[in-house]
Design a binder for these strands. Structure first.
Length: 442
RNA sequence: GGAGAGAUGGCUGAGUGGCCGAAAGCGGCAGAUUGCUAAUCUGUUAAGGUAAAUUUUUGCCUUCGCGGGUUCGAAUCCCGCUCUCUCCGCCA
């Protein structure tokens, strides 16, 4: 009696697309840093059965040594038979013994496979461990690191972007709702052109800073989206095409980070910087009622993303570069923003340290999150199996970082609300004028 | 969608049932040698797991696209899947 992997329950089988015997979050790290892992689980509000993981880990190793001993015996017998056959003799006793051993191996192998699958399905729920310099606690422990510019009030009553957009014909939210439903946007006329201008301006800027532009797929498979850590936790947040088992990307972090999935990058190529402008698709499940007006929260939006691949001793510095590159966009656009260091409880599943960039919007009188820059350390690299190798060295997991540079809708809101004039028109920020074909006012 | 071909180590590529984890070549690394920006010779050259020991080793196991099956034994035979290429069809 043996259980093949195909007879596993569907949910386990789905998780077993990973390399055989490969465990994505280092089980040794868990064994050796139990307290840190526990703390991370609590900080990030996850529920993971650590005891079960440790128990399965132990059981797995126990079974593994058993089956390996048997395999060793089998190999020896096989050699015996092989030699006998080659000298024209027969080895009926050894052959019969080997048959018995093989049966035992099959049974044990199946058991190990089942344990592996269960272990992996549990381990996929373990979040990344926050870096030591991240403040502990929930949202209210977030720290404003610096502010650029001043959150000024207009010397006339500032209009919110939905009024500005409607008056100037920059977007058509009613018609977007007609086509798709609530929380969809549709830029029109010079509004659409402004979006295109922003995307091009941001991409061009990043390319100049050493990023390679990528135009990736927007539909990705389950393995890819598990690699970056959106799955299994955020399954309900994503649009999914069941017929083809594709997920619509919630951010281009997913295809960009998985660019080197299952690869060993030659060490001398690091650091590698990728950027792309893609749509992002988010169901925003559980967010209904929040930010319903205007385009602050929509199911589909465009975003320019930056991703870094670096050696482990470079990731802390790389995060600063990433934030700096995102800030550069906002500075060139002359927008007031602040940099916020997120507390452990406000960080995403995959992140060890995150800075948010928030733009000041005088119309809605709020700080708007337009960028989230995260150091994911080796967390995503383990899941996606991305390594690098220096000459003569052993392969190691890379560190991956990602940050928006930046997301369009809230950037658009900030531009419209900040650059509005008393007469209801909107000035185009000077850096965008060339991208607008010379248009200076909306 | 249909027909066919293929998938082997960093790369090229041999291997149709038994010391094949895998020939050979290239590339890489180390050494030797030659007076010249290179040649020649020699050696070496994967990843993962696990145990002992321990900071560097040693033993054992696994891995020839993925997953099953046949067999005492599978890179090799059979089945399913994925991907790549060629041709046909369809199509933005």
């Amino acid at each position: 009696m043996h259980i093949g992997i195909q007879e596993l329950p569907k949910n386990l089988e789905m998780l077993y697309f990973f390399h055989k015997g490969k465990v994505m979050l280092d089980i040794k790290l868990i064994r050796n840093n139990l307290e840190k892992v526990k703390k991370a689980i609590i900080a990030k509000h996850e529920k993971v059965n650590l005891e079960k993981i440790l128990e399965l880990d132990q059981l797995r190793r126990q079974k593994l040594t058993q089956v390996e001993d048997l395999k060793c015996e089998r190999n020896k017998k096989n050699e015996l038979i092989s030699k006998a056959k080659q000298s024209g003799q027969d080895a009926p006793v050894a052959m019969e013994e080997m048959g018995k051993i093989s049966d035992q191996i099959k049974a044990l192998d199946a058991e190990v496979a089942r344990i592996d699958a269960e272990l992996e399905s549990l381990m996929l729920w373990l979040p990344n461990i926050p870096a030591d310099d991240v403040p502990e606690g929930t949202e209210e422990k977030n720290q404003v690191i610096r502010t650029w510019g001043e959150p000024k009030k207009k010397d006339f009553p500032a209009k919110p972007h939905w009024d500005l957009g409607k008056n100037l014909g920059l977007f058509e939210l009613d018609r977007a709702a007609k086509l798709s439903g609530s929380s969809f946007s549709m830029f029109t006329g010079l509004g659409a052109r402004l979006e295109r201008a922003l995307l091009n301006f941001m991409l061009d800027t990043h390319i100049r800073e050493g990023y390679k532009e990528v135009a990736p797929p927007y539909l990705v498979n389950r393995k890819t989206i598990t690699g970056t850590g959106q799955l299994p936790k955020l399954e309900d947040e994503m649009y999914y095409s069941a017929k083809d088992e594709f997920f619509l990307i919630p951010t281009s972090e997913v295809p960009l980070t998985n660019f080197y999935q299952d690869e060993i990058i030659p060490g001398e190529l690091l650091p590698i910087y990728l950027t792309s402008a893609t749509p992002c698709f988010r169901r925003e499940a559980g967010a209904s009622g929040k930010d319903t007006r205007g385009i602050l929260r929509v199911h589909q939006f465009n975003k320019v993303e930056m991703v870094h691949f670096v050696a482990e001793d470079q990731s802390a510095a790389s995060l600063e570069k990433l934030v700096h590159d995102a800030e550069g966009i906002l500075q060139q656009l002359g927008l007031t923003y602040r940099v916020v260091l997120l507390a452990t409880g406000d960080m995403s599943f995959s992140s060890a340290k995150t800075y948010d960039l928030e733009l000041w919007a005088p119309g809605v009188e709020r700080w708007l999150e337009v960028s989230s820059c995260s150091n994911c350390t080796d967390f995503q690299a383990r899941r996606a199996n991305i390594r690098y190798k220096m000459k003569g060295g052993k392969p190691k997991f890379v560190h991956t970082l990602n940050g928006s540079g930046v997301a369009i809708p809230r950037l658009m809101v900030a531009i419209l609300e900040n650059y509005q004039e008393a007469d209801g028109h909107i000035k185009i920020p000077p850096v965008l004028v060339p991208y607008m074909g010379g248009v200076t006012v909306l």
